[in-house]
Design a binder for these strands. Structure first.
Length: 967
RNA sequence: GCCUUGGUGGCGGAACUGGUAGACGCGCUGGAUUCAAAAUCCAGUGUCUUCGGACGUGUGGGUUCGAUUCCCACCCAAGGUACCA
């Protein structure tokens, strides 16, 4: 009988579904095990071969744990809000809910075909109102909480209000906005309701603030960094600038220290912990205040209260080396302090900076640029004037957006000073700074620094902080690179905020009226006045009396108020989904106390490391918040995390520019340099790019779908024009009549248009083959290229396995059979525990090869082998299990037990090396002693042959391992 | 730029704590079977070679009896870099 995988796989998939084989119960005598894979975003391209990699690994582990007697929870769902569905909606007018529903259907079919042991009764979708009701609920909980530094946890906002009523805010230790005013109890009680709300907003864990966005004026919308190529929009190639906008933020910085500390108690990969540690970026130093010297020419400088610049520095010990200050061009003070003579230059520079992305500014360390503001600050100790510059190497979002520049001690400051001829005072004992800055803290001895002379870095730091505190110009401070997370998106396809505005102040909708469902809109684009897409909704106002959404026309600011127009970001729905799986149909609470009490936390989480500083940090933050407020029993939700490596694909690129106002794509071979291609293609003709614009934005590298490109890297130009409507009328500059694309290896992703689908592979080889092959590709954690060709190897292994079971007899296994089996049990069990699934597959191949050679027919051996294989290739395992005479599923059959006694050896084939190189092998008994081995080896004729009369200088014998002869 | 990971035959990869480099599979070559093909099976397959052997794990150094494994410096590729998820 042939191995008919199509019938077998369909049969068992049906069996598992009908018998609810993998349904988890929220209570059991068995120990619990919660295995989780990161849920997918259901994109229009369907599941690609990169997705199942982690799912297969989690599935193998889940099935293994079932064999080991655990009550396993292994759920799956969809992260179904997101940008691509919305972009598709913009292009086609199709409602994102419809495309999302279709995509999910497709994903489900694809997932079902792979034979996963998911408990589908617990499926969640982040875009379902029944789910996002609880995302909105958490948002409200955050809004109604503040962070108490004394108790080091989040507390209900009521406790803060009662503190304010009793003693004002002077004694309150809270994480809050920098500009929170000081007030006493009497003042608080005298504040109007609006004033009180304004103040509370500065304390809430989610709050409104002005933050920067990538604004694209031509598209009238905010763009994701992902949608920007070389400083212009990917869609249309329009300029993008940085602009401030009022948005919701999450006070994740309140948790900075706890997010760091928590890393010590979880079993996560070290690189991932490092990423989070660096992201949080704790540094110790001092906050120092410089006064700006008033200038009569600058109208705004108030006489009584001078402007101050606050800086954070990790090297307060070098304060006497300050020779200038640099502000981020966006710094609030810049327009206030700039002198009339410098105004034009400063404004031009600020405008130019707004066009650069933060990443660009960080990455570019070669270009030094800046402008003098004309203003001076006063050195807190020497009282000398210090010139104030602006420079784009200072980022507004890090620290205070201002630095005290110490050119002798910081290379960037040094380069800046050199470039602009600013003095570089040397404040280090015995150090030459004529060539470069000196930044070695360990050997620092301070000089030319008044009271700090002769001190080390440590001593000087301590002393200077004390002095700064004395004169009221600074304080020791721990700074974090981590910033509060912007939580608003100017998008349609996301969770609506349960928020309406009364007199400009945000109000939460009561829990009993949730979910607040997304309104219908006619267009998914921003409104003509630049409001987010929800601004297009005509029924988007909150009637406080009726507690329902009503027409905008009824807004009277008395009972009917405007609703929030932004939506939540992609990570909102994924930050607590793992807890929702525990009790996904609960409509009364996010989960019942019983469910969370039983499942507690995730035992194993497998997902990509690219989520290190996004999802995996935000969800830890929310979990800690949920813990503080008493909703969950653990403040870390994942004990053990494994990063699956990416499957890489080969992307194709086209090169876009504009010539004579027309979008033009240039074949790869035609671009050597910008100058080259312009000469070559313009042929003296008129074109609308000026030479000074030849910078990075003159040409953009754009992804083309790999399905439009053949094996010789030729683009199907006609298909490409049809692929995206905006390319319909584009021009193409060809080479030899062809358009040749660029190729690069990148992670496989829908957004990079380089995906390979698993469907055809399933059809041709079956799910078990695909499962085995994905594991066989290489170590789970490493990224690896996809190449379907090799799958025939694992497929023929399955055929061999099938043939091995052709004759089944109730025969005693031979010693060889048992040795092969137990060798396999040992290795496979070790491999699963170490998540080394690739080597298991090789082990199975060796096992089947050996048993076939031994002509094994023993039922006892086959039973054990079927269970071993079942986590990896569950369909064939079930079928073989049935052939062995079982009527129940193999899913809970106990895992085979390894017995050492079958593997005991009496001799070893020793490698005999000369100067570390193996020359021949010699079989010797394992109980032979060191000296006997040495004697036996030296007596051997091949040894004499190798030595050719020389006497060995040394003989190293490691019993059971190796013999090495030196000489 | 910064942080993280990786680099071993034509390809994916293996090698547990420093001890036989290239397991297992793909591909390729030759053979069997077949009218032929597919499928299957058998044998071979790191490079060079005067057929003794020599050289080989990104590059250059170092430690060691012995290094893919440990140390130092460098090169290259991928992921992340705060609005892709």
């Amino acid at each position: 009988m042939n191995y008919d995988f199509r019938d077998i796989e369909a049969k068992w998939q049906k069996y598992w579904a009908e018998n609810e084989t993998f349904k988890a119960i929220n209570d059991s005598d068995k120990p619990k095990f919660y295995a989780l894979s990161m849920f997918p975003y259901p994109s229009g391209a369907g599941l690609h071969v990169g997705h199942p990699l982690g799912y297969i690994a989690t599935d193998i582990y889940s099935r293994y744990k079932r064999h080991k007697g655990f009550n396993v929870l292994h759920p799956m769902g969809y992260d179904s809000f997101g940008l691509p569905a919305e972009q598709y909606a913009i292009q086609t007018g199709q409602h994102p809910a419809i495309t999302t529903e279709n995509n999910i259907k497709r994903y489900r079919e694809q997932l079902d075909r792979l034979g996963f042991s998911f408990d589908w009764s617990r499926e969640v979708r982040t875009s379902n109102p029944g789910y996002y009701k609880w995302t909105q609920w958490i948002f409200i909980q955050l809004f109604n909480s503040w962070y108490n530094k004394s108790s080091d946890k989040a507390e209900a906002i009521e406790t803060l209000v009662s503190l304010f009523e009793k003693e004002g805010n002077t004694a309150v230790e809270a994480v809050c906005d920098e500009d929170a005013p000081n007030f006493g109890a009497a003042e608080w009680n005298a504040f109007s309701e609006k004033e009180k709300q304004e103040i509370l907003l500065k304390y809430r864990l989610t709050y409104l603030a002005d933050t920067e966005v990538n604004w694209c004026p031509a598209l009238g919308t905010v763009l994701a960094n992902d949608e920007i190529v070389n400083g212009v929009s990917e869609r249309g190639g329009h300029p993008v600038i940085r602009k401030k906008m009022t948005q919701w933020s999450m006070r994740i910085t309140a948790y900075a220290q706890r997010l760091l500390d928590g890393l010590n108690k979880i079993d996560w990969p070290q690189p991932l912990k490092d990423s989070q540690t660096n992201w949080i970026g704790r540094s110790e130093g001092a906050s120092v205040t410089f006064n700006v010297i008033p200038n009569a020419d600058v109208t705004s400088s108030a006489v009584e209260k001078p402007d101050t610049i606050e800086v954070f520095t990790t090297r307060p010990d070098t304060i006497f080396g300050v020779s200038f200050m640099t502000l981020a061009p966006e710094h609030d003070l810049v327009p206030k302090i700039t002198t009339p003579e410098q105004k034009a230059e400063v404004e031009a520079y600020v405008e130019a900076t707004a066009k650069r992305s933060e990443r660009d500014r960080m990455a570019d360390v070669k270009t030094i640029s800046g402008v003098f503001t004309g203003a001076y600050a006063e050195h807190p100790f020497t009282k000398e004037p210090v010139p104030i510059w602006i420079g784009d190497y200072v980022l507004a979002s890090y620290g205070t957006g201002a630095v005290m520049a110490v050119p002798c001690g910081d290379q960037r400051d040094y380069d800046f000073a050199k470039h602009y001829n600013i003095a570089i005072p040397n404040i280090f004992e015995g150090v030459d700074i004529s060539e470069e800055a000196f930044a070695d803290k360990a050997t620092t001895i301070i000089a030319n620094s008044d009271f700090l002379n002769g001190l080390s870095y440590k001593e000087a730091t301590k002393k200077v902080i004390a002095e700064l505190e004395k004169i009221g110009h600074g304080v020791g401070k721990v700074n974090y690179r981590l910033r509060d997370a912007v939580f608003s998106r100017q998008r349609y396809w996301g969770e609506p905020f349960p928020v309406y505005y009364v007199d400009g102040m945000p109000q939460m909708i009561d829990l009993e009226h949730l979910p607040l469902e997304l309104p219908e809109v006619e267009k998914y684009l921003p409104t003509e006045t630049g409001e987010p897409p929800l601004g297009n909704a005509t029924t988007w106002a909150w009637d406080r009396l009726k507690a329902e959404v009503v027409s905008n026309e009824l807004i009277d600011h008395v009972n009917v108020f405007p609703l929030e127009l932004n939506t939540m970001p992609g990570w909102a729905g994924s930050s607590q989904y793992f807890n929702r799986y525990m009790d996904p149909r609960n409509d009364e609470a996010i989960f019942s106390p019983e469910a969370i009490g039983y499942w507690q936390d995730v035992d194993l989480y497998i997902g990509g490391s690219e989520h290190a500083t996004g999802h995996l940090l935000y969800s830890r933050f929310w979990q800690k918040f949920m813990f503080d407020r008493g909703y969950v029993p653990k403040d870390e939700y994942v004990q053990k995390l494994i990063n699956q490596g990416m499957i890489t694909g080969t992307s194709a690129f086209v090169y876009r520019t504009k010539i004579n106002g027309k979008v033009t794509f240039i074949s790869k071979g035609k671009i050597k340099t910008y100058a080259d291609y312009l000469i070559e293609i313009t042929d003296g003709a008129d074109f609308d790019l000026k030479p000074e614009q030849f910078g990075t934005s003159a040409l953009q590298k754009i992804h083309a779908d790999v399905s439009l490109v053949n094996a010789s890297d030729e683009l199907d130009v006609e298909a490409f024009k049809k692929w995206q409507p905006e390319y319909k009328d584009a021009e193409f500059i060809l080479e030899d009549g062809k358009y040749i694309v660029g190729r690069e290896v990148e992670k496989m992703s829908k957004s990079k248009y380089n995906v390979v689908n698993p469907d055809a592979i399933c059809e041709e080889y079956g799910a078990d083959s695909l499962r085995l092959y994905e594991m066989f590709l290489g170590p789970l954690e490493q990224s690896k290229p996809w190449n379907t060709a090799g799958i025939t190897g694992v497929h023929s292994f399955l055929k061999k396995l099938w043939r091995l079971f052709e004759v089944i007899e109730d025969k005693e296994p031979t010693a060889d059979n048992l040795k092969t089996l137990h060798k396999t049990i040992k290795k496979v069990e070790e491999d699963i525990e170490n998540f080394s699934f690739n080597t298991s597959v090789s082990t199975f191949m060796i096992c089947v090869n050996e048993l076939t050679a031994q002509k094994c027919t023993s039922r006892a051996i086959f039973e054990q082998l079927a269970i071993l294989v079942s986590p990896y290739a569950p369909h064939i395992a079930e079928e073989l299990w049935e052939r062995l005479g079982h009527t129940e599923s193999i899913a809970e059959a106990p895992f085979p037990k390894f017995e050492e006694k079958y593997l005991v050896e009496s001799s070893k084939e020793y490698p005999i090396s000369f100067n570390g190189k193996m020359r021949f092998k010699l079989e010797l008994p394992l109980d032979m002693g060191k000296d006997e081995i040495e004697a036996a080896v030296l007596a051997h004729e091949k040894t004499q042959e190798q030595l050719q009369g020389r006497t060995p200088k040394k003989v190293i014998v490691v019993p059971g391992k190796i013999v090495n002869i030196v000489g």
